[in-house]
Write a protein that binds this DNA or RNA. Structure first.
Length: 492
RNA sequence: GCGGGUGUAGCUUAGUGGUAAAGCUCCAGCCUUCCAAGCUGGUCACGAGGGUUCGAUUCCCUUCACCCGCUCCA
């Protein structure tokens, strides 16, 4: 079954079929950047559409949002990204391995392999100023480190055409903050009541130290995130709800169950704000066949909204400091923060609180790749290899292809007409070139679920054949019934 | 960032210090009444830059990109 065993096979398939190309390829490529080709963009759009439908449109308790990528600099101060999305890394002069400074241990220290969160650069410099006793985790040499160098994990750009007074901005490293910042707006404009969620799909940017693995980890990527706000105390219940809902989403879209699993985060692995976190992982066929994260579902507690209340209180200081972020400290939290501007008033209980947040955060590029890999199959047909993509109908880039059996006797005209009619309902493809068998196989490789063929009999009794991708079986049905037939089969 | 490997047509491969070959694909035409048929013709490549050389795809250097393994990261 596993016909794709190496990453190379995936890359080759993606390029050959027009799913994914390397960015700027004619210029030799650009590291970590990829473009979606004609089939790829349809596939990825369908993945996003399926997510949006399941998470937003099919529910009464979730609304959507589409925020700008550039946000107020204080957003990243409050969220913690400005300080904490920068690591200090030192390189061992002996073996040239790089290690995060805060991961380095002194010789005598215990072996407990604790997982630490990002800490602020300032704090890191104070805490780890002396590397002379630190041990290289790779070669064991003591105190042979280069000066710690900071890594900026957020992309920066300038806003304002006038260089002199332009402001440094960051491209968002996650879409989530746009949701938190609009919490008030959504509350005030939509009459939603807790528990409810706000969902968003969009690009995010992270200056990862290493990328690698095709589109699996890239610096520019697309996220689909939901922030689900609930009353403290009900958070465990919603956490359970969403982890299951998100797992089922992949299964319902045809992903093989044996390739999907949960991975619970250990306590010491959790981000400082998270109460619980679980990854949905897919068994990608990279190298050793490792499980890789598709999506994380986290219980973020009330951390984010509380942080933004602090951020709002910092605004004046920021103006006074000439709109510079350096040397600005986030304002302390108000004593009665639970009644703050981002609190929620519960009508039934007549009390205010800061809601807890459950966050399912999925990588759309990763999901697209996983669906692609999972759908790929090869089989033997009459001694010939048939390769096909068994996409779920919702994800298939093209839903139906329409052929005249041969290019004469008026068949092309009829087929064209059918194609034009169907096109208005879903994505269709017309092809009249070459032998019909070849055309079938071409559609197999694109993952098209159905092929409709107009033949000599069509003119006599107005029937066509519908050929099914997975079984290659054909059914003859009336052209008048075609639309209904396909809509039922495709679930549209 | 380190170590190892790779880079020839859309794909898979061949080959050489003297101007690159094949299969499949693709395009056009003919022929074709149901699963990559046939015939004819055609398009398309040595990742980029520099050096050595009369001459470099081949040797050397640099660079870019990708893969594997570390490191790092969610």
């Amino acid at each position: 079954m596993a016909k794709i065993t190496k990453l190379d096979d995936i890359v080759s398939l993606c390029k050959r079929r027009g799913f994914i190309f390397q960015s700027s390829e004619i210029y030799g490529g650009l590291a970590s950047c990829y473009d979606y080709g004609p089939l790829g963009v349809e596939l990825k759009n369908n993945v996003k559409k399926a997510w949006w439908k399941a998470v937003v449109q099919m529910r009464d308790d979730v609304v959507g949002l589409d925020c700008s990528i550039l946000m107020h600099p204080l957003v990243w101060k409050a969220s913690g990204h400005a300080d904490k999305f920068a690591d200090l890394i030192a390189e061992c002069k002996k073996c040239n391995t790089r290690t995060r400074v805060d991961h380095l241990k002194e010789k005598a220290e215990g072996q407990a392999d604790e997982h630490t969160e990002h800490i602020s650069i300032d704090a890191a410099q104070v805490e780890t100023g002396d590397l002379s006793k630190k041990v290289c985790p790779n070669c064991g040499v003591v105190g042979q480190f280069t000066e710690p160098m900071p890594f900026k994990l957020m992309f920066e750009t300038q806003m304002g055409a006038n260089v002199d007074d332009s402001m440094t901005m960051q491209l968002r490293p996650e879409t989530a903050q746009g949701i938190f910042v609009n919490f008030r707006n959504v509350l005030d404009s939509t009459r939603v009541k807790i528990p409810f969620g706000i969902a968003q799909i969009g690009k995010s940017f992270r200056n990862e130290v290493t990328t690698k693995a095709f589109i699996f980890r890239t610096r520019e990527f697309e996220q689909a995130e939901l922030e689900f706000f609930c009353e403290p105390g009900t958070d465990e219940k919603w956490y359970e709800h969403w982890r299951q809902a998100r797992f089922d989403w992949y299964i319902n879209l045809g992903m093989k169950k044996e390739n999907l699993r949960f991975r619970e985060h250990a306590k010491d692995e959790l981000a400082h704000y998270a109460k619980g976190c679980v990854d949905v992982e897919y068994k990608f066929p990279f190298g050793s066949g490792d499980w890789q994260e598709l999506e994380g579902v986290a219980n973020r507690t009330d951390f984010d909204l509380r942080q933004h209340q602090r951020g709002m209180r910092t605004l004046n200081k920021w103006f006074e400091n000439d709109r510079k972020m350096t040397n600005i400290k986030l304002a302390d939290e108000a004593e009665d923060y639970e009644k703050g501007p981002l609190s929620y008033f519960d009508e039934e209980q007549k009390r205010r609180y800061i809601p807890y947040v459950i966050e399912p955060s999925a990588g759309m590029d990763r999901s697209t790749l996983a669906f692609l890999v999972d759908a790929y199959d090869e089989e033997e047909v009459r001694g010939e290899k048939r390769s096909l993509l068994r996409f779920h109908p919702d994800l298939a880039p093209v839903k139906a292809a329409i052929f005249p059996l041969v290019k004469k006797d008026g068949m092309p005209e009829i087929a064209r007409k059918i194609c034009d009619d169907l096109k208005r309902r879903f994505n269709c493809f017309y092809d009249e070139k070459g032998a019909v068998g070849r055309r079938y196989r071409r559609q197999d490789e694109a993952g098209t679920p159905f092929c409709i063929t107009v033949d000599g009999q069509t003119k006599e009794d107005n029937t066509v054949t519908v050929r099914e991708r997975d079984s290659m079986e054909q059914t003859r049905i009336s052209a008048d019934q075609l639309l209904n037939y396909l809509r039922e089969k495709l679930g549209l």
